[in-house]
């Protein structure tokens, strides 16, 4: 499936009124069982795709919220292999929603670029976003992804030059991620005008779907982004809700937040995770 699942999802989004909604959550925060319960519930609540954050010790593009979730996941002993295992467990539970791994390059490099791409393929991961791997350095991972039909999704920023936009769009598949601000991840009170302007600049170079992220935290932001781009990505605002929720209300509150972003009321999840189904790589 891979790239094709992403393409199908965006084709569906383009046929309807409402913009696409991509949610980000850190894998293994507050624990891996929670991640496995949350993802199908959030898809049922209206998320069209899920970015699963792979925790890293030095998340230098993250604001305080995702730094904290990443740090807590690592404290739980979550490894890259665990995240891939979680993706594999989730795959049949969300058959139509693209699953994208988002993280930093060192854990990928340490796992081995080719084994990582191969494991992504076998786990049913559709795309990869590596925050600190700009186009100029992405060659080895891009080659491994391409041969396995996995999208390596480029990030573009308001500071991106015309040349780097053109180059990234040429090599891209799946969709292009537009970073709406010059800054780190984190909820902001309004959508940055520079982010919307960036969408226009990127649109001139590609027909691929465009998603806008960083700082998107409210239903009106999603609608505003939807007026120019195909999808909005909500990360820190969701993780903030998770940080603030007691464990027994976590799934319910996170689902309600995602439903509000999608302009819907929560639905029961079609595929539901049965506790105990997941075993971490380490414990196997």
């Amino acid at each position: 499936m891979g790239r094709e699942r992403i393409e199908r999802m965006f084709a569906g989004v383009r046929e309807r009124e409402r913009p696409g909604l991509i949610v980000f959550l850190t894998a293994g925060f507050p624990d891996m069982e929670a991640t496995l319960e949350l993802v199908p519930a959030l898809v049922a609540a209206g998320a069209d795709a899920v970015e699963l954050g792979v925790p890293f010790s030095d998340p230098l593009a993250e604001g305080p919220t995702i730094q904290q979730s990443s740090f807590l996941a690592l404290q739980n002993g979550v490894t890259t292999a665990d995240c891939l295992q979680a993706a594999e467990t989730l795959r049949p539970l969300i058959p139509d929603a693209p699953l994208v791994l988002m993280g930093y390059y060192n854990p990928v490099f340490s796992y081995g670029v080719a084994p990582f791409a191969a494991r992504c393929r076998s786990a049913g991961v559709d795309g990869i976003i590596a925050v600190d791997l700009p186009g100029a350095e992405s060659g080895p991972l891009a080659a491994q992804c391409q041969s396995r039909d996995i999208s390596l999704i480029p990030l573009l920023a308001p500071t991106s030059t015309a040349a780097s936009i053109a180059e990234s769009c040429r090599a891209a598949s799946g969709f292009v991620y537009c970073v709406s601000v010059t800054g780190v991840t984190g909820a902001r009170t309004e959508v940055s005008g520079r982010g919307l302007e960036l969408v226009g600049r990127v649109r001139a170079h590609t027909a691929l779907p465009l998603a806008v992220g960083f700082g998107i935290s409210a239903p009106e932001h999603v609608a505003e982004v939807g007026s120019v781009a195909d999808a909005a990505v909500v990360g820190s605002a969701l993780v903030r809700v998770m940080l603030d929720s007691p464990r027994d209300q976590l799934v319910e509150r996170a689902s309600a937040f995602v439903a509000s972003l999608a302009g819907r009321t929560p639905q029961p999840a079609p595929g539901q995770y049965i506790p105990g189904q997941y075993t971490s790589e380490a414990s196997r």
């Binding site: 925050v131 100029a136 920023a157 500071t159 780097s164």
Partner: peptide, 12 residues
């Protein structure tokens, strides 16, 4: 070596 930085910093 190389330039393993977020895209936002590439221009800088």
């Amino acid at each position: 070596g190389g330039m393993f930085v977020p895209e936002t910093l590439m221009a800088a």
